[in-house]
Design a protein around this nucleic acid. Structure first.
Length: 258
DNA sequence: ATGGTCGTTGGACGA
């Protein structure tokens, strides 16, 4: 089975790219983040014609997540037990579904904005809540895929010195990520492709390969042992390819043995 | 320290 994750930065503006991506890589399950669409705004027709089922949660221009699957979608859940919410909760950050015997979570970890912003404390709370909820999922095949908004190591950032007073590289964020690995979860993409997954739109960051590795697939042991490969589809981020503007994130593809 | 570019929108604001 081939699973992918992609912060698509608006599903409606990039539906043509999503459909082409699903076909180009023969994707079975695609977890999306930043869909910026309510469920009823998702353009379903083309996806259904390609044989895919869709589950989604989100609100207008705010953060939304979705899972597109052609191996069946069952037991769909919006959010996880104990998931912290920020104020009016006008965001959807976690969507779980069972696809082909694997529990897939499309996660959009809070950005945090600035280390002194309330959103930063919320980010750490959210990650702690996820860790607690995930502790009961470890014995079944589970994939926590998505935009983690964390650079776990300095190698995951084109210039760590530029992020001294920014989120993504702070010790508490890194500790929150490492906690999953200490519990036995395995980030499976790094071993196969250590390249960046996100490049800012401005300053020609992609052309100069000045990016971040922040999109990951954190798998439970029974699933991690079945992973046979993974790669970042950098072509999908390349402004020189395709006729429409790309997302600022590249998709990540993970192959799993039956 | 600041600004750069997208997307949603119809003016900022978040990333």
């Amino acid at each position: 089975m081939r699973i992918a994750t992609w912060n698509v930065n608006s599903l409606r503006s990039r539906i043509d790219r999503v459909e082409a991506f699903l076909q180009r890589h023969d994707i079975d399950v695609l977890a999306l983040q930043e869909t910026k669409a309510r469920e009823e705004q998702i353009p379903l027709m083309g996806l259904q014609m390609l044989g895919y089922d869709v589950a989604a949660a989100g609100y207008d221009q705010w953060n939304g997540v979705a899972i597109i699957s052609r191996v069946g979608l069952t037991d769909v859940t919006v959010g996880f037990e104990g998931m912290p919410e920020f104020k009016d909760a006008s965001e959807a950050r976690a969507l779980g579904a069972t696809c082909g015997g694997v529990r897939v979570w499309s996660l959009y970890v809070p950005n945090g904005r600035k280390p002194d912003d309330p959103h930063y404390a919320y980010k750490l709370d959210w990650l702690a809540g996820l860790r607690t909820a995930a502790s009961s999922w470890q014995d079944v095949p589970t994939a926590l895929v998505g935009d983690w908004n964390i650079c776990p190591t300095d190698a995951d950032c084109f210039d760590p010195s530029q992020f001294r007073n920014s989120t993504h590289l702070t010790p508490p964020e890194r500790a929150a990520f490492a906690a999953f690995e200490e519990d036995g979860w395995v980030e499976v993409t790094r071993a196969h492709d250590a390249g960046y997954t996100y490049w800012d739109y401005y300053r020609q960051r992609f052309e100069r390969n000045r990016g971040l590795k922040i999109d990951f697939a954190v798998c439970s042991p029974p699933l991690a042992s079945r992973v046979t490969g993974a790669f970042v589809d950098r072509d999908e981020r390349d402004p020189a390819q395709g006729t429409s503007s790309p997302s600022d994130h590249a998709p990540v593809i993970i192959d799993i043995a039956d």
